[in-house]
Design a protein around this nucleic acid. Structure first.
Lengths: 220, 220
DNA sequence: ACCACGCAGTCAGGTCCGTTGCAGGTTGTC
DNA sequence: GACAACCTGCAACGGACCTGACTGCGTGGT
């Protein structure tokens, strides 16, 4: 079950969203403005995904997001923008795995996008790899030992850990860790793999990030 | 190599998908609408994975999928849903190992999802030889014992195991393991056969890679 | 405005290992 | 026994990978 954090001032919109989400088996945490958002939707709120209105009375949704992020809240965000808002820079904040929809929206579309965001950021179940990847804290944990990862390191390790036991091709790994089709130097991925290996070693992770020569990498 | 069947009416989207897939070494079969899909992407088309637009001019991609399924086409499907489409029950068809992405999509994400679908839908065949060749891990397994192979070793063993019980001519084996018409020393294949024998022995494989003098090799 | 810091990405050099073919021994066939 | 086909061990080559350091960029604090 997904916990959705909503920050929206319009009671009708809140209502519609809440009903639809609950009907689909999700839980909802409400904030009516930016202040409440920071209070209710922060790092330890258990929220899996954020739905933030851009046009709040007391703040811009993007600023709210920023504030939450700096407080350690890394759940992906879906922004709601008004139909007649200026669309410059809207696409800009789609980076970082976030997304947006334009009001008035079809509620079903919002549901799809929420599920899509959640799917992309789901933590890897510890059962498969022995590692606990925490997207909220951008960290890996094994037992009570934990290391922080950078966003890129986290995406890369996530992609490889998701296929634990299988070989992840270099190209696949690149596509997963550098989503917007960025072209990175072949060697860049090696550097990141190395950094991840070093970090995994510091917590005595019971896994090995092996390289399968000519193919890719594999977590065992 | 994966064969991807695409059903999409927008020429631009077709173009982007086709280019990206070809660039990544896949083959593409095109259908511009539901009718063509049923004609071109059916059971015997050799398609490994389907990419279906939901919003086709003459049909719903989900109906197309249904039609193909009832015709015996069981390749997994990736659905493309339009940004502004109405998404009633969209999450419903995620069952069956299918998946979907929302337009506009990052092409890299589509690639990752396609490869993921293909991987999941290709279970390791419990081959007649008693060997389990796992292309995902580049390994052979028998029972719970497993050895890693190099890419060339794997291709060679794969070619011979595919004809388990029959004799594979040296020429045929070379053509299978060295695809681009490379000219290799006659002795090179002997070296590889030897190494494969050694590796099979380490896992007590219940088979024998015998040589048929003057002809080729055979797995029994 | 400035600086310190952390992250992303690149580079150069070194190392490793898959691939290949050689040399010499062994087996099978006539 | 003679010859060809095959097996075995080994060593060279080259590309793939590893490593450590460096640059540039953005962010946050002073």
């Amino acid at each position: 079950m997904t916990v959705v954090g909503i920050c929206e001032d319009d009671p009708d919109v809140r209502r519609v969203l809440t009903d639809a989400l609950k009907m689909n088996g999700h839980r909802v945490v409400i904030a009516r403005n930016g202040r409440e958002a920071v209070e209710n939707l922060g790092r330890h709120s258990g929220v899996d995904v954020l739905v933030l209105d851009i046009g709040l009375p007391d703040a811009d949704g993007r600023d709210v997001c920023q504030a939450l992020r700096s407080g350690g809240q890394h759940a992906p965000a879906l922004f709601l923008t008004a139909f007649d808002a200026v669309h410059d820079r809207v696409s800009g904040f789609r980076s970082g795995g976030d997304d947006y929809v334009v009001k008035p929206f079809a509620i079903a579309e919002v549901l799809v996008r929420i599920e899509s965001l959640v799917r992309r950021s789901r933590p890897v179940p510890a059962s498969t790899s022995g590692l606990a990847l925490d997207p909220e804290r951008l960290s890996v944990r094994v037992g009570d030992r934990e290391v922080a990862l950078t966003p890129t390191e986290f995406r890369l390790l996530g992609a490889i850990a998701a296929e634990a036991g299988n070989v992840v091709r270099r190209r696949t790994a690149v596509a997963a860790a550098w989503p917007d089709g960025a072209i990175v130097n072949e060697n860049t991925i090696d550097s990141y793999v190395r950094r991840i290996r070093v970090k995994l070693a510091t917590i005595d992770a019971p896994v090995e990030l092996t390289t399968v020569r000519g193919v890719g990498f594999s977590l065992r």
